[in-house]
Amino acid sequence: MELTFWGVRGSFPVARPHARRFGGNTPCVQVTAEGNHVVIDAGTGIRRLGQRLLSQGCPRELTLLISHPHWDHIQGFPYFEPAYEPEIEISIFSILRDEDKLETLFSGQQHVAFFPTPLEQLPSKVRFLELEEGRPQDVAGFQILTHRLNHPGVSSGYRLERDGLVLAYVCDVAPSRDVLLADPRPGVSEEAFLQELFENQVRLAEGADLVIYDTFFTPAEYAERRHWGHSTLEDGLEICRLAGADHLFMFHHNPERRDEELAILYEEARRMGESQGLNVHVACEGQTWKLERGGLTACE
């Protein structure tokens, strides 16, 4: 399994010198395995992924998994050039949504007031599909599981499994101990639902080789912004410990976070991880990693 980070920044794209080293594009992660191909989230990073795909002979069928429809996770899609190729089919998945269907929201993003080409006029064949929560399904050569997370609205994380290798994408997520941010589940108390959302993180990361986690905040920042829907490294360490995961990637970096600050946080995180037998990495735009039975290696 190989993964490439095309966008690692949270909230909005940051084209400023302070974010140049780790990258300013909003979330997009490409996962490939023996010709199978899945893209997680469609932040601005997906624009350059699309160009790369077209220059290398784009697969005819592309699969996108969308964690949730906040701008930073969908805003790159109108600029995804394979969507303008008539022979390409794009399947866009989300967790089952009772209202605010993803298709409606993608269509709203491309309303003529905001963007010149309506979704319905894209030359490629775009279809929207939904995954039932908690039921693993075979999609594009991976077994894929999704669970809801504690983040405003309806958002979900993903677990991708293939040949005994497991990658989990747990982002955007707030700690499930203080405030319920997710749309409530009818008939379930707030407390019980928070507990369920906490356990969902562990279910997604259970025995994972690699967990991509929302480490937007430092603990001090979180204390002041508990309703924003993001976590800290410490939350990620706890989930990985409970789930018995091997590698954690710090991801969805705060737009204000300066490169030198992030480098220091990463050094601290690495040491904290070591003390619990976890390998901590920081997601950096443009980097590709190879995950094999024997371990994880960075590709040049």
Binding site: R9, F12, P13, V14, A15, R16, P17, A19, R20, G23, G24, N25, T44, R47, R48, Q75, G76, Y79
Partner: peptide, 18 residues
């Protein structure tokens, strides 16, 4: 000064991607 979409990318760093 950039059109269409922000480009926080190396080839556009000098003139700017906002």
């Amino acid at each position: 000064v950039r059109g269409s979409i922000p480009t926080p990318d190396e080839p556009q760093a000098r003139y700017g991607g906002n």
